[in-house]
C-alpha cells in the first residue's frame, strides 16, 4: 500500500450522498460504510459546488475537499482541519469554534461569519462581509476583501494581505484588523491605530500560522474600534 494513503478514506460525492458523508464525519453509523476511525483522514472528491460540505465536524480530523464548494462549507467546525482545494461559496467556516479551515481559492461573502475560534485562511480573495460579527476567530486572507468586512466584529483578528473594500470594521467592537494594502473607506467608529510591539508580534504569529511568514508585519496597518459607539450619546439620536 502507498504509505501516503494509510488511514485516508476517500468519498466520491458524485456517488455517496452528502448526508451520508457528513454523518460518517460526525461519527454516526451509515449503512454500507465502515465507521471512520477517530483520527482517520478523509478526502472528498467531486463536491461540484454542493452546499454544507463537511459541516459540524467535531473531531481532530484532517479533511481535504478536492474542488469548489457551495454555501456554509465547514460551518460550525470544531477541532477538524479542513482544506478546500478550490473556491468556497457563501459563509465558509461560519460559526467555527476551533480547528482550521483553509480555502485555496476565493471565498464568497460572509466568510468566517460569527466564528468564535480557530483559524480561517483564504488564500485568494474574500468577498463582502468577511468576518462579519466575528467573535474570536482568526482570519487570514491572502488577497483582498470586499465591502462591509468585519462589520460588528467583536473579538479575534482579521489579517488582509491585499486591500479592503468600503466600510471596513463598521460598528466594530474589540476585534483587531491588520491590512497591508489600501482601505477603500473605514466604517463608523473604525480607526487606524499604531502598531506597537505586541501587535507586530501577534501579526507575525498569525502570518506564520497561515504560511505567510515571509511578510513583513511592519508593512501592515492596524485598525480597531474608536469606542465612541459603546455608550449612548444624545448627539447620535435623530
Amino acid at each position: 500500500m502507498d504509505p501516503v494513503t494509510i488511514g485516508l478514506r476517500t468519498f466520491d460525492l458524485a456517488a455517496v450522498p452528502l448526508r451520508s458523508v457528513n454523518a460518517l464525519l460526525h461519527g454516526r453509523p451509515v449503512d454500507g460504510h465502515a465507521p471512520l476511525a477517530i483520527d482517520e483522514a478523509v478526502e472528498l472528491v467531486n463536491p461540484r459546488g454542493a452546499h454544507a460540505v463537511a459541516v459540524g465536524l467535531d473531531a481532530p480530523r484532517s479533511v481535504r475537499v478536492a474542488g469548489h464548494v457551495g454555501y456554509y462549507a465547514a460551518g460550525m467546525n470544531q477541532r477538524a482541519d479542513v482544506v478546500i482545494e478550490g473556491n468556497a461559496g457563501v459563509g465558509v467556516a461560519e460559526n467555527m469554534m476551533s480547528g482550521s479551515v483553509t480555502v485555496r481559492g476565493n471565498a464568497s461573502q460572509s466568510a468566517g461569519a460569527t466564528a468564535h475560534g480557530g483559524l480561517l485562511v483564504v488564500e485568494g480573495d474574500a468577498a463582502a462581509r468577511c468576518g462579519i460579527s466575528m467573535k474570536g476567530v482568526d482570519i487570514v486572507v491572502g488577497g483582498s476583501i470586499g465591502h462591509m468586512s468585519a462589520f460588528m466584529a467583536q473579538a479575534g483578528r482579521l489579517v488582509v494581505r491585499g486591500d479592503a473594500g468600503e466600510a471596513l470594521g463598521d460598528s466594530l467592537y474589540e476585534a483587531r484588523l491588520y491590512v497591508r494594502g489600501s482601505v477603500a473607506s473605514l466604517g463608523a467608529d473604525c480607526v487606524a491605530k499604531p502598531m506597537r510591539d505586541e501587535h507586530l508580534e501577534e501579526l507575525a504569529g498569525l502570518l506564520k500560522a497561515a504560511g505567510y511568514e515571509d511578510d513583513d508585519p511592519a508593512e501592515y496597518t492596524r485598525y480597531g474600534s474608536a469606542r465612541t459607539l459603546y455608550h449612548f450619546h444624545a448627539d447620535n439620536t435623530y
Binding site: 461540484r48 459546488g49 461559496g89 463582502a128
Partner: peptide, 26 residues
C-alpha cells in the same frame, strides 16, 4: 451596492456563463 444576492461568472474561450451559484455551472 450591497450585493447580498449571489452571482458567479465563468468565462471560457468557448462561452461566458453566469449563475446564482457555482453548482449550476458544473
Amino acid at each position: 451596492a450591497i450585493a447580498c444576492k449571489p452571482a458567479v461568472i465563468a468565462e471560457h474561450p468557448r462561452w461566458v456563463a453566469m449563475a446564482s451559484e457555482y453548482r449550476a455551472l458544473v
